Structure formats: structure tokens, C-alpha cells
Simulated assay, not measured.
Amino acid sequence: MNLHVNEIKLVDDQVHVFTAEEPLELTATGQMITDSDHFQFVYQLDDGARYQHLRFVEETWEMMSQYKDKDWYLYGTIELIRFAEEFELLLDNIKDNHNYGKAFTEKVEEVFAL
């Protein structure tokens, strides 16, 4: 299932992420991937049966860049463990790497000043 981020708030120096979908019982995996075809960063969550994809669309990237070193929480309660580390690893891998697609790579480099 895909969960689409529709709100990001800074609360007491923590980033709280909310989705368009109803909250679910989930466990953070500490893993992040990309969906370069749809210009999205995807944090993987586990519901006990399968992965759920927390999708950060291009419109959220500015806030991701601004708050990337903070602690991130889904619904303000589920800590997205290793978010900053995984995100930084992805950014490092995307820089100058057109395997993600030239348009995606160039947009990421622009938004995140790589």
C-alpha cells in the first residue's frame, strides 16, 4: 500500500509527517528507496504482513531538505528510524548518477544543492 505524505510539520524540533490515508499500525524499517519514475523518495514501513510505502512527492522535497537532519515521525508517534542516514546515502548515490534518470537526478541535485 502507498501512503502519501500530505503534511509535514516541525513540532518541538521533530518533524511530524502525516498522510492522506488513515493511520495504520506500522513499524519503521530504517530503509529508504526512490521511485525515480514518479519523482518520489519512499520510506519503507512494515505492517507485519508486507511493506507499506511512505511516499514523499516532489512538492515535499524543500521541507525534506530543510529538516533532513532532524528526527522524523509518522503521525507524530512512529519514529522513522535511520531517516537522516538513509536519506543522506540516497542523495550521495544520486549525485551525478543518471541511472536514476537524467531528469530525476538533475531535479534532486537542484533541490538538495548537490
Rank of each mutant, 00 (worst) to 15 (best):
E86F: 05
K9A: 07
E62D: 13
L114G: 03
G76P: 09
N97W: 02
Y67E: 04
L45S: 02
D35R: 04
E21M: 05
Q66P: 03
P23C: 08
G30F: 03
F39N: 09
D92N: 09
H38T: 15
H16G: 08
M1Q: 15
N6V: 11
A28C: 02
G30D: 07
K95F: 07
T77S: 15
Q31V: 09
Q44V: 08
N6D: 12
D69I: 04
I8T: 01
F18L: 12
H38N: 15
G101R: 02
K107N: 08
D92P: 04
I33S: 00
S36M: 04
E21S: 11
R50P: 00
N6T: 09
L54T: 06
Y75P: 06
F39A: 07
V17E: 02
R82H: 08
V11T: 11
A20T: 13
R50A: 10
V42H: 02
K9H: 14
V57Y: 14
F18A: 10
F104Q: 00
G101M: 08
M64G: 08
R82L: 05
P23G: 03
I78A: 06
M32H: 04
W61V: 06
H53P: 03
Y43C: 06
L45F: 00
R82M: 10
D35M: 11
E110S: 12
L114H: 09
D35C: 01
P23R: 03
V15G: 05
G48D: 01
E25I: 05
R50Q: 13
K102Q: 11
D71S: 13
P23K: 07
G48W: 05
Q44S: 08
E58N: 07
D35F: 02
Q31G: 08
K102I: 13
D13N: 14
Y73G: 06
E25F: 08
G30L: 00
V11A: 01
K107D: 04
M64H: 02
R82P: 00
R50F: 02
I94R: 01
A84T: 13
F41T: 03
S36W: 06
Q31L: 14
M63Y: 13
T34N: 07
A84S: 14
Q31E: 15
L45I: 02
T105P: 00
L91H: 05
D12H: 09
Q44P: 01
V111M: 10
K107I: 07
A84N: 13
V17M: 03
L89Q: 15
F83V: 01
Q44Y: 03
Q14G: 08
E110L: 11
Y75E: 10
A103F: 13
T27F: 05
I94A: 02
E22G: 11
K9W: 01
T105G: 04
K9L: 14
Q31N: 12
F112Q: 03
M64V: 00
V11L: 04
K95P: 07
E88W: 00
F18N: 15
E62C: 06
D13C: 02
A49Y: 14
M63P: 08
L90P: 04
E25V: 03
E59W: 12
E59V: 13
A20L: 12
A49F: 13
K70E: 10
T19H: 08
Y75I: 01
E59K: 14
L26W: 03
T34A: 04
D69S: 11
E86C: 09
E62L: 14
D12K: 12
F18Y: 15
V57N: 15
T60P: 00
E22H: 11
E21Y: 02
